[in-house]
């Protein structure tokens, strides 16, 4: 549980902004936006983009490479898989849980999907299998977390091992290549000669689904309630076990969607792929201002967090910074962003 005093504090801070006389509705809105926890990451995203554009594009002659439509759509393609995982992860973290299994579930669903296609199943049938397996994995974790109140970190760690192991068992440890034509989900969809990556479209669709569930359906409110004050939620007549089950199922489903895209990208099922993706997903959620203790956060923040990680990755590549240094930078960025978030909350 998070510290209730802390909650009060933050709520006061954000609330007091609203109490000012509303003579300037625009200024009011601005204040509300600035007070949001994901604002730090949003600012970082803008600054990073400007900085990189300056160094990569404007300080050299010739055509720019960073601030081009091509590169920017490419970034969204690159972040699609982890962002989709982050959608599910947002659900889980909002209830105060965590799902470490999603990377392994991506690999498992991808392997099974490729196996099904090799075995002669139609493409969409194989996708269906992947989704069912993802949902089953989520339901498995959800069952143990909800029914027996086991710590989510342990249950999903176990799920991670099992999913990884099952993928390896099924494939014998080898990649299962499928025909190149099945890679169309990873390619572009052309609108008026303007190429839009299909993974980007799927990612946006998943964010939209997540947004609608969390903000427009009762179950969304219950998810926040469970993470905010579980005892109050129980006594308010919320079936908290069902809610917990649901968020892990969503996470499993999102992992399967990510697995389908992953399969299309590499036109094979690779049992050793997607290692550590769960950590990128968690990083995106946390950068997006969602409280790791649950109960507070927003899915739009997750999108910002995921884009920040994507742009950072892309920018560091263009600045020709070594992959080793990149990881150090990524770690520092996560730490600073969260630190600023906490310090702002304390004020």
């Amino acid at each position: 549980m998070s510290n209730p005093n802390e909650l009060t504090h933050e709520a006061r801070a954000s609330g007091s902004a609203r109490e000012e006389p509303s003579a300037h509705p625009f200024r009011e809105m601005l204040k509300t936006v600035v007070a949001r926890p994901e604002f730090v990451s949003f600012l970082a995203l803008i600054l990073l983009t400007l900085f990189t554009a300056y160094y990569v594009d404007f300080s050299h002659d010739g055509p720019g490479r960073f601030l081009t439509l091509d590169n920017l759509t490419n970034i969204t393609r690159q972040v699609a898989v982890t962002s989709i995982l982050a959608v599910g992860m947002t659900f889980v973290i909002l209830t105060g849980g965590i799902d470490l299994s999603v990377g392994a579930v991506v690999a498992l669903t991808s392997t099974l999907m490729a196996g099904a296609i090799i075995g002669g199943a139609p493409f969409w049938g194989a996708c269906g299998i992947a989704l069912l397996v993802g949902i089953a994995c989520g339901a498995f974790s959800g069952f143990f977390v909800a029914r027996f109140s086991l710590p989510a970190i342990i249950v999903t760690l176990a799920m991670m091992e099992m999913a990884r192991g099952l993928g390896l068992l099924y494939s014998g440890g080898n990649p299962l290549p499928i025909s190149f034509e099945f890679g169309f989900l990873a390619r572009n969809f052309t609108v008026n000669g303007f190429p839009v990556p299909i993974p980007t479209l799927i990612m946006l669709a998943m964010f939209l689904i997540g947004y609608v569930i969390l903000n427009r359906l009762p179950i969304g409110r219950y998810i926040y309630a469970v993470g905010g004050n579980e005892e109050a939620a129980i006594l308010s007549g919320i079936r908290t076990r069902h809610i917990k089950m649901f968020v892990y199922v969503v996470s499993g489903f999102m992992a399967a969607v990510a697995g389908i895209i992953q399969t299309a990208r590499v036109t094979s099922g690779q049992p050793n792929s997607a290692i550590g993706f769960e950590l990128d997903a968690i990083a995106a959620v946390v950068l997006g201002g969602t409280s790791i203790a649950g109960g507070r956060g927003h899915i739009v923040g997750t999108l910002i967090g995921a884009l920040l990680l994507g742009v950072l990755n892309n920018a560091l590549n263009m600045l020709e910074i070594s992959p080793y240094t990149q990881r150090v930078v990524k770690g520092v960025v996560i730490l600073i962003a969260v630190l600023i978030g906490v310090l702002r909350k304390k004020k």
């Binding site: 209730p4 909650l7 009060t8 933050e10 709520a11 409110r221 219950y222 926040y224 309630a225 905010g228 004050n229 005892e231 109050a232 939620a233 006594l235 308010s236 007549g237 919320i238 109960g295 507070r296």
Partner: peptide, 17 residues
């Protein structure tokens, strides 16, 4: 401890059930 959702508005606290 077991009644309020402190991070919610008054409205959300009323309608939650």
């Amino acid at each position: 401890k077991s009644g309020l959702f402190l991070q919610f508005s008054i409205r959300s606290n009323i309608v939650i059930s």
